Amino acid sequence: MEYKDYYAVLGVPKTADADAIKKAYRKLVRKYHPDVSKEADADVRTKELNEAYGVLGDAEKRAAYDELGSAQYRQPEGGGFRPPPDWGSGFESADGGADSDFFKDLFAHVGGGRRHGFAMRGDDTHAVIEIALADAYHGASRTIGLRVPQADEHGRVVTRERTLDVTIPKGVTEGQQLRLAGQGQPGSGGAAAGDLYLEIRFAEDRRYRVEGRDVYQTVPVAPWEAALGAGIEVATPSGRVSVTVPPDSQGGRKLRLKGRGIPGTAAAPAGDLYLLLEIALPPANTPQAKALYEQMARDLKFDPRRGL
């Protein structure tokens, strides 16, 4: 039997990695698909490509094929190709009814001579899901809509809407990916579907800044609370908390609440919540307020630009 170079069929070197092989296969199969190609041999080329990828796209089959391609299994003087005894045990052949003699001979004795459909796992898909920061503290359930490509009854790729119920676990962080097994692209030939990866993104909220599991929250305080000290109540993502503002606090002072950041997981401890004090000045929009500001200006002799 004549040796068939599957690497040449796909136009890749023997050192090509799995991604390069898949990319080459998809490019060529799109080019020669009978529905779109004007090439006279499009159907034959498509079958050759499917046959080649059926072997090189499977790590175990590729390893065995590479072994078969070594010089020790070639007949001398171009006499064809001779597989080693008992080669192929444990592999399945590709379907299609028109495999090359080379492929048939290699896989004829596999599985007791039975021929099975060519199977390929579906592709993984990726999407972004936007959640509120509070969802990372408490967990949540969301229903999301996805536009995904699927093959219709004629084998053409179309875009369809699908909805999916998603559980947001407590303690997720921005950029983390949630894996939903089997929710990616469907497989072919009865193979498993790929997975769906949802990347977490926090909805914009001017009150908070998030760094990993640490959360920074701006908290307005009155001038007298900052100057004299005060006990205040603050609404945080985890609920309301009582906080002591130390006397003589300046704007920008940072109060740390240990463990009040995004909750921890088995792999990472909880973050901290940092309250950034911001001095909020009452408006001088009444005669009384203006009088108080004028009295402060006379009595305090305060120069905020001293030393500049």
Results as ranks from 00 to 15, higher is better:
residue 4 K to L: 13
residue 7 Y to D: 09
residue 7 Y to T: 11
residue 10 L to P: 05
residue 10 L to Y: 07
residue 12 V to M: 08
residue 15 T to A: 13
residue 16 A to F: 04
residue 20 A to T: 15
residue 23 K to A: 14
residue 24 A to I: 06
residue 24 A to T: 06
residue 27 K to F: 04
residue 35 D to I: 05
residue 36 V to S: 10
residue 36 V to A: 08
residue 39 E to W: 07
residue 42 A to N: 12
residue 43 D to Y: 09
residue 43 D to T: 14
residue 43 D to A: 14
residue 43 D to S: 14
residue 48 E to V: 00
residue 52 A to F: 08
residue 52 A to Q: 10
residue 52 A to T: 10
residue 56 L to R: 02
residue 56 L to G: 03
residue 63 A to G: 11
residue 63 A to P: 06
residue 65 Y to W: 11
residue 68 L to E: 09
residue 71 A to S: 12
residue 73 Y to E: 03
residue 78 G to A: 08
residue 78 G to N: 11
residue 78 G to H: 05
residue 78 G to S: 08
residue 79 G to W: 09
residue 79 G to L: 10
residue 81 F to S: 05
residue 82 R to Y: 11
residue 82 R to V: 13
residue 84 P to K: 11
residue 86 D to A: 13
residue 89 S to P: 01
residue 92 E to A: 14
residue 93 S to M: 09
residue 94 A to H: 11
residue 101 D to W: 05
residue 101 D to L: 09
residue 102 F to V: 09
residue 102 F to W: 13
residue 105 D to H: 14
residue 109 H to E: 15
residue 110 V to R: 11
residue 111 G to V: 03
residue 116 H to T: 15
residue 117 G to V: 12
residue 118 F to R: 13
residue 119 A to M: 07
residue 120 M to Q: 15
residue 125 T to Q: 14
residue 127 A to K: 08
residue 129 I to N: 04
residue 132 A to S: 05
residue 139 G to H: 12
residue 141 S to C: 00
residue 141 S to M: 05
residue 141 S to E: 12
residue 145 G to K: 08
residue 146 L to D: 09
residue 151 A to M: 10
residue 151 A to N: 10
residue 152 D to R: 12
residue 153 E to W: 03
residue 156 R to C: 04
residue 157 V to P: 03
residue 162 R to E: 15
residue 163 T to E: 12
residue 164 L to Q: 10
residue 166 V to N: 02
residue 167 T to G: 03
residue 167 T to V: 14
residue 169 P to N: 02
residue 169 P to W: 04
residue 170 K to I: 00
residue 171 G to E: 00
residue 172 V to C: 02
residue 172 V to Y: 00
residue 173 T to Q: 06
residue 174 E to Q: 14
residue 177 Q to D: 10
residue 177 Q to M: 11
residue 178 L to N: 06
residue 178 L to I: 10
residue 179 R to H: 04
residue 186 P to I: 06
residue 187 G to L: 08
residue 188 S to E: 15
residue 189 G to W: 07
residue 189 G to A: 07
residue 190 G to S: 00
residue 191 A to E: 14
residue 191 A to Q: 13
residue 194 G to E: 10
residue 196 L to M: 03
residue 196 L to F: 02
residue 198 L to F: 04
residue 199 E to G: 07
residue 199 E to F: 04
residue 199 E to L: 04
residue 202 F to K: 04
residue 203 A to Y: 01
residue 206 R to T: 09
residue 207 R to C: 00
residue 209 R to Q: 14
residue 210 V to F: 00
residue 216 Y to C: 02
residue 217 Q to C: 03
residue 221 V to C: 11
residue 223 P to W: 04
residue 225 E to H: 09
residue 225 E to A: 11
residue 228 L to A: 09
residue 228 L to G: 04
residue 231 G to T: 15
residue 232 I to S: 03
residue 233 E to W: 02
residue 240 R to P: 12
residue 241 V to Q: 12
residue 242 S to F: 12
residue 247 P to Q: 07
residue 250 Q to D: 06
residue 251 G to D: 10
residue 256 R to C: 08
residue 265 T to W: 01
residue 269 P to H: 03
residue 270 A to T: 05
residue 274 Y to C: 02
residue 274 Y to N: 03
residue 275 L to R: 03
residue 278 E to Q: 15
residue 280 A to D: 14
residue 281 L to R: 13
residue 283 P to V: 09
residue 290 K to Q: 14
residue 291 A to L: 13
residue 294 E to N: 13
residue 295 Q to P: 03
